[in-house]
C-alpha cells in the first residue's frame, strides 16, 4: 500500500510539471485528489487493512494530501501570474523616457539663482538670530543719504552714481543701507540684529560685470559694548558658513560715511590659499565686503543713543556671491528674464 502511495505522488509530480494552464490544473486535481481520483481509490482499499496498518497508512495518505494540495496552490499562483504578466506585457512603456530625456522639456521649473543664494544666506543669518527685513526701492534723500551721515556735498550723491527722480528729492536706493535706519526705527529697543536683502540701483553704464540694477544684503547688529573684536569674530563665523569651509579674513581701513571705523574686509583667496594667483591679483586676498562700527550720527538718526548702545554693520554683494558660486560670467543675465538662463539652476 505504501508503495502505491509513493508511486501516486511520483506520477502527480510528473503530471504537475506539465501543468501550465488553469484547465490542466483542474484535470490534475480531479485525477489525483478528486472524489473519484486515485487517492480516494487507495483510501477505499484501506478498509481491508489491519487497524495498525490503517492508522499508519491513513496518516501517510493525509500528509501526502496536504503536500499535494500545497503544490497545486503554488502551481495555481504561478499560472495566474503568467497570465497577468502576459497582459502586462501588452502595456509596455519605456521607463527610461523621463522628462529630462525629452527633446522639449516643456515644464522645467526652478528658482532663480539669486533666490537660491539669498535664501541660503537668509537661513544662515536666521540661525544666528538675525531678523530679515525689507524696504522700498523708491526712497527719499533722508534714508539713502542724510541719515547715513552722507552730507549734501558728498560725492556719493553725485548724479553719476544715483538715479534721481525729477523732483530731485526722491531716488532709487543706491544701497540696502537704507534699511539700517528703517530697521532701527522699526526695532527701537536694542539689542537687535537684522539683515535686508534686495535690489539696489546705480546709474552706471552696464557691461558683463556692471549692472544698474543688482542685489545687496545689508546687515546690522546693535547692542551694548559691541567691539571690533566682536565684528571680526562674527564675520569669520558667517563667511566660514557661507563658503562651507574655514576662511581667514583681514580688516583694513575703508571709508564709508555710515561707519567709523570703517573697513574693507578681505578673505584669504580660496583659489590659491593665500599664495597669490590671478584671481587675487597675486596678493593672496580678495576684497569681499565693506563693514564697520556704526557711526554715532547714524545711531542718532535711527533714534538710538550712541552713549548707551553701539554696533556694527556690513554689506554683502549678493550678485557677486551668486556669480562666484555658479561661475556666471555676465551679471546682465540675472535680470534678462531668460529661461535659458533660469533653467540651469536646480530645476525640477
Amino acid at each position: 500500500m505504501i508503495e502505491k502511495l509513493k508511486s501516486l505522488e511520483t506520477s502527480f509530480k510528473k503530471v504537475l510539471k506539465e501543468t501550465d494552464t488553469e484547465a490542466k490544473l483542474a484535470d490534475l486535481k480531479a485525477r489525483f485528489l478528486g472524489k473519484k481520483g486515485e487517492l480516494s481509490a487507495i483510501l477505499k482499499s484501506l478498509a481491508q487493512a489491519s487497524p495498525e496498518e490503517r492508522k499508519t497508512l491513513g496518516q501517510a495518505a493525509n500528509e501526502m494530501k496536504i503536500r499535494l494540495t500545497g503544490k497545486m496552490d503554488e502551481a495555481k499562483g504561478a499560472i495566474e501570474r503568467t497570465i497577468i504578466d502576459s497582459k502586462l506585457a501588452a502595456d509596455w512603456i519605456d521607463i527610461t523616457l523621463t522628462g529630462s530625456q525629452r527633446a522639449r522639456s516643456v515644464k522645467e521649473s526652478g528658482l532663480h539663482p539669486v533666490t537660491i543664494v539669498q535664501r541660503e544666506l537668509e537661513d544662515i543669518f536666521l540661525s544666528m538670530g538675525f531678523d530679515i527685513l525689507d524696504g522700498p526701492h523708491i526712497e527719499n534723500d533722508f534714508y539713502n543719504f542724510t541719515a547715513l551721515n552722507i552730507p549734501e556735498t558728498h560725492p556719493a550723491r553725485d548724479m553719476q552714481d544715483t538715479f534721481w527722480f525729477k523732483d530731485m528729492k526722491h531716488l532709487l536706493r543706491t544701497h540696502t543701507s537704507t534699511i539700517q535706519i528703517r530697521g532701527m526705527e522699526e526695532k527701537k529697543y536694542p539689542p537687535f540684529k537684522f539683515v535686508a536683502p534686495g535690489k539696489v540701483f546705480r546709474s552706471e553704464a552696464t557691461d558683463a560685470s556692471h549692472e544698474a540694477v543688482f542685489h545687496q544684503m545689508e546687515g546690522m547688529l546693535i547692542g551694548r559694548d559691541i567691539t571690533v573684536a566682536h565684528l571680526i569674530y562674527f564675520e569669520k563665523t558667517l563667511l566660514s558658513e557661507i563658503f562651507k569651509r574655514d576662511v581667514e579674513i583681514r580688516l583694513r581701513p575703508g571709508f564709508f560715511p555710515f561707519v567709523e571705523p570703517g573697513f574693507e574686509l578681505d578673505i584669504q583667496c580660496l583659489i590659491c590659499g593665500g599664495k597669490g594667483c590671478k584671481v587675487c591679483k597675486q596678493t593672496g586676498w580678495v576684497e569681499l565686503l565693506p563693514c564697520g562700527m556704526t557711526h554715532p550720527n547714524v545711531l542718532r538718526h535711527g533714534g538710538i543713543d550712541p552713549e548707551e548702545y553701539n554696533g556694527f554693520a556690513f554689506g554683502l554683494g549678493l550678485d557677486r556671491l551668486v556669480m562666484m558660486r555658479y561661475g556666471i560670467n555676465d551679471i546682465r543675465l540675472l535680470h534678462s528674464g531668460s529661461i535659458d538662463f533660469s533653467r540651469q539652476f536646480a530645476t525640477c
Binding site: L126, G129, I132, P191, V228, I232, Y233, T237, R250, L251
Partner: peptide, 20 residues
C-alpha cells in the same frame, strides 16, 4: 593693525526668531 585684535563672540541673547 586689526589683525592684532583677538576675535571674541558677542554675548548671545536667547530669543526665538522665525522668518517674517
Amino acid at each position: 593693525g586689526y589683525d592684532s585684535i583677538t576675535p571674541v563672540s558677542p554675548a548671545h541673547d536667547i530669543e526665538a526668531l522665525r522668518l517674517s
